[in-house]
Amino acid sequence: MTADAAPVSVGTEGGSPDSGSSVWMRRFTEYGIIWITLGLFVFLSISSRSFLTGANLRNIVDQQSLIVIGGAAMTLTLISGNFDISISSIYINATILTALLYNATESAFVSILAGVALGAVFGFVNGWIVAKLGINSFIATLATSFVFFGIAFLVSDRSIIRVTDRDFSQIARGRDFILTNASWIAVAVVLIFWFVLERTTFGRHLFAVGGNAEAATLAGVRVPRTLIATFVLTGVAAGLAGALLASKTLSAQPSDDFSYVFAVLTAVIIGGTSIAGGEGAVWRTVAGAFFIALLTNGFNIHQIDPIIQRLVQGAVILLAVAADNWTRSRQ
């Protein structure tokens, strides 16, 4: 950080305008995930006939829909400078509650709303613990994860719940216009979170809290309130994703499986939202999610050992974080 000594920059890029290659590098790192994802898309379109088909693409989008819903919200959490590990447990609880309530009421509206409301309540608990008790969010939500997983086992009596009325699957699986309903819901969620982040006072406060909490407080931002709202929104998104999962699979099962949060975090981080807080964007997470999806799809189409895919995915996460560190150190 040498801005104190730096002359005033005239450009809007904020870089060093003297060097053309550095501007180019900045543009590349800024939108890198888009170029890479598009490149992969083009490569797969050329290298395989079965890739560029309506059914395959529709499947890719559908498979990513629940991850994108959680990821759009998790982007906000990371921008606020926090993690929410508990979305896996909220997701599983919401699946169980939605399945149970649908069997009891036969009302899709009531049962899905209940899953979402459950997410809001659990999210509030997380936010309160982080904002008011000041516990590191990674640890706090790891701890609440186990509590929530425990609740799921208690509520479900440790058994698989099956939704007997198959019509319920239409909520997520139905196809109204090219894509599945779950995909359209994901599109709506992305647009809502994008809007909240970029166009509302809450979104601005979020960037401020994650960028410099001290400065935000002195600028009159009520930091605890902002954090609690962030965790509530993350919980709501995880609850919605869980409710849709119940519709997709027509079943719900308690477990202590953290795979949902890891898939979501992978999408957010590969997209380039900073784990240091204060910077990031919802479109990045969408791009990150589709990069992973294309990678998986490409490996499947070309019948490459899925183990290789794990290696590549790990390397890509490291690359994404290294790129973030690199741009940061240049500021």
Binding site: N212, A215, L218, G278
Partner: peptide
């Protein structure tokens, strides 16, 4: 450390409160 959001634009820093 107490005033500005260094990576955000001038406009957002001015309007924040």
């Amino acid at each position: 450390t107490h005033g500005l959001l260094m990576s955000r634009p001038v406009s957002e820093n001015v309007s924040l409160p």
